[in-house]
Every structure is written in structure tokens, then in C-alpha cells.
């Protein structure tokens, strides 16, 4: 075999492997989604939304977990978004390349990559131990800590995309800096900033580990954020690991719900970003 044929052979072999690996990735995604749909669709019915999580061995729904998840997530976004937006504003508009701003960026990356279970341990020590009981608020704070770095970095990136001329034009009309930022820069960057918040919601929707030590679970209907609270991820964890068929079926239904929501939000952010890119 001459050199030329050998090189062609190596090339074809490696490129074939490249195609196979991509096919593998797509196959695994398809496998997971098909399993979810097959196992989940059968378990989805109206009582899922009207009945409470059942004791072992009987049928029931996920109503309390759905409401709990909704409340905890909503509070987490309300707590985390302003912090992320303001801190991101500081980095993009005031801090820029100063040493302090660079350190905050570094710290933010640490927070972004910190294992979520560590955040659970932190909030357990911060809130659950001093208060003496698990609570929905503790769960919200834990999730808010995951929201902050996501919102912060998208806010900063989006604000940096706003042309400096717009700021200068507004400043030339006599607008003070805070009005320039809040009335001009935010308005120009709003799509990107909303995208960041949706991405953050998508990320915390399926987060289980930080809720295990904070909100825990509650078998009953509860809208009291000051007490332990049912939520979808922890229900999935407990029900899927259990030996009871009814529970496992509910776990699959909840898994399908969560995945649909998360993937839907991810696709929505793509559409938003693409449409704002064209505008």
C-alpha cells in the first residue's frame, strides 16, 4: 500500500468514526426521550393535577408537588434575578476591567460550576439548622443561588453587546448614567436578559440535589413556604427509588412533565435569541 492510499485510508477511517460518534450522541438523546414518552404518557391523566401524592400502594396525583415546585421556583427567580441583573450591570457598566470586577467574574464562575449538592449543604447550614426545620424558603434560596450566576453572566454579556454610541447619545442629552442604563441600555438588551432568566428557570426546574436538604418533601397539600414542601424533583427521586409500582408510575409522569418543560424553555430561548439577532 503506497503512502497516498494509506493517508486516504486513515482519513476515511477517522471520519467514519466521527460520524459514528455523532450518531451515538443522537441515538442516546432519542433513547432517553423515547423512554420518557413511552413510560410517561401512559401515566399522565387528569388526576395527576387534582390529587395529592399518595401513600405507598395506592393511586394518586402530583398536585401538591406541582404547586410546591411552582412556588419554590417562582420565589427563587424573584430572589435571584435582581441580584444577578444588578451584579451583571455592575460588571458591564461600572467595573469593566478593574481587578475587583475580574475577581467577581472569577467568583461567579466558581458559583456557576459549584456542585449543586454543595449549595444544598450550604443552605442547610444557613437556614435549616438555625430555623430548626426544613422549609420552602430554604429551597428557594438554594435555587436562587443557582439562578444568580446564570442571570449575571447573560446580563453582562448582553449589556456589553449594546453599542457605546447609544449610551453616549443619551448622555449627551443630559441623562444621568442610571437613567441611561435603565432606560436605554436595558431596553436594548431586554431580549437577551429575559433569555438568561428563562435559561436559569430551565436549569432549576430539574434541580434535585439542593432541594433534598432544604425543602425536603411533604405528603400533603401545603402552600406554607415556612414548612417543608412537596416538589417534583424530590418526589421523582423518592418515588423512582421505591419498590412500589404506583409510585414509580407517578415518577415517570413527573419526569416527562419536567423534561418537556425544560426542553421547551430551552427551545424558547433559542427562538428568542434568533429573532433578536435578526432584528
Amino acid at each position: 500500500m503506497n503512502l497516498y492510499a494509506r493517508r486516504k485510508l486513515i482519513n476515511n477511517f477517522n471520519m467514519t468514526i466521527s460520524v459514528i460518534t455523532t450518531a451515538l450522541g443522537v441515538i442516546f438523546l432519542a433513547w432517553i426521550l423515547i423512554v420518557l414518552v413511552v413510560k410517561g404518557v401512559g401515566a399522565i391523566n387528569w388526576s395527576l393535577f387534582t390529587e395529592m401524592t399518595p401513600p405507598p400502594g395506592s393511586a394518586g396525583g402530583l398536585a401538591n408537588a406541582l404547586v410546591g415546585s411552582l412556588l419554590i421556583t417562582f420565589a427563587a427567580v424573584i430572589i435571584g434575578t435582581p441580584i444577578g441583573v444588578m451584579a451583571g450591570t455592575y460588571l458591564a457598566e461600572y467595573g469593566e476591567k478593574s481587578f475587583f470586577a475580574e475577581s467577581v467574574r472569577m467568583i461567579n464562575d466558581i458559583l456557576l460550576s459549584a456542585p449543586s449538592i454543595i449549595i444544598g449543604v450550604f443552605v442547610y447550614g444557613l437556614m435549616v439548622l438555625p430555623m430548626g426545620h426544613f422549609s420552602g424558603w430554604a429551597g428557594s434560596v438554594a435555587l436562587a443561588i443557582i439562578v444568580i450566576p446564570v442571570v449575571l453572566s447573560t446580563t453582562e454579556n448582553m449589556l456589553r453587546l449594546v453599542p457605546t454610541q447609544m449610551r453616549e447619545a443619551a448622555a449627551a442629552l443630559g441623562a444621568p448614567r442610571w437613567l441611561v442604563i435603565s432606560n436605554i441600555v436595558y431596553k436594548a438588551a431586554i431580549t437577551g436578559m429575559v433569555t438568561g432568566v428563562i435559561l436559569a428557570v430551565a436549569r432549576i426546574t430539574g434541580e434535585t440535589a439542593p432541594l433534598l436538604f432544604t425543602a425536603l418533601n411533604n405528603q400533603f397539600w401545603s402552600t406554607n413556604m415556612n414548612d417543608s414542601m412537596a416538589n417534583l424533583p424530590v418526589v421523582i427521586f423518592q418515588f423512582a427509588m421505591s419498590p412500589y409500582d404506583d409510585w414509580r408510575e407517578l415518577a415517570w409522569a413527573a419526569a416527562l412533565l419536567i423534561t418537556t418543560l425544560v426542553l421547551g424553555m430551552n427551545i424558547l430561548t433559542r427562538v428568542l435569541m434568533r429573532s433578536s439577532g435578526k432584528a
Partner: peptide
């Protein structure tokens, strides 16, 4: 999208 699937789903 494979990256967005929650980890508990991978677990199940």
C-alpha cells in the same frame, strides 16, 4: 438539548 435534560432523568 442533551445537556439540558435534568440529571435526575439520566438517573432514572
Amino acid at each position: 438539548l442533551l445537556a439540558a435534560v435534568p440529571s435526575i432523568i439520566y438517573g432514572m
